[in-house]
Amino acid sequence: MLIELNKVGRRYHMGQGEFWALKDVTLSIPESQLVTILGPSGSGKSTLLNIMGGIDHADTGTVRVTGVDLSHASERDLTQFRRDTVGFVFQFFNLIPNLTVRENVEVTADIAKKPLSIDEVLDAVGLLPMADRFPSELSGGEQQRVSLARAVIKNPSLLLADEPTGSLDFVTSRDILRLLVQSTRPTTPPSCWSRIMLPSPI
């Protein structure tokens, strides 16, 4: 099993009270499964993804991903886990503005154990002709494709996408989702994203 969550809870303190963002979440996700996480705002989607990806920690329960127990991992171990195991795609791209498309992807490739070919990945997302451009010279959809290339380049066991189309128009969203599906099949493992197929204002 790639991901195993057992009675996972996460609470946040709000003023003098506390708020449980996740309560007793138990689920297992095998390899090569494409999972969509749906739910209203505040339902815990991002918290769940962040815990699976080692960005956040659970307050109760156990979390195992690729056999690694994240529940008791140190910050150093979590950093190593994220670097070796997880590819992230965020809603707002988080690209490095003063690096070109190729350099943004190269940064991740340089620290990966078994990176894929940069040219092949850029070609797969249709950005090879734009490899020398800077993020500010790209559209939102193109920037998200860079973000996807950066996540995929290290050939991660787990690809997590948190609202990857949240800031894109419908047509561009469809293209990005198609790329996400392609990137998870047939060779790579599950992708989780929240709020799939959101028709943002065109």
Binding site: P40, G44, P199
Partner: peptide
């Protein structure tokens, strides 16, 4: 196309099912 849908509500799993189909925008709850 997705293999599986996990629907959350108030931090709990409300639904977890295998689907093997496209998720439509109308299904998304804000």
């Amino acid at each position: 196309m997705t293999d599986r849908v996990i629907r959350l509500r108030s931090g709990e799993v409300e639904e977890d099912r295998l689907v093997g189909r496209l998720i439509k925008a109308e299904e998304v709850t804000w």
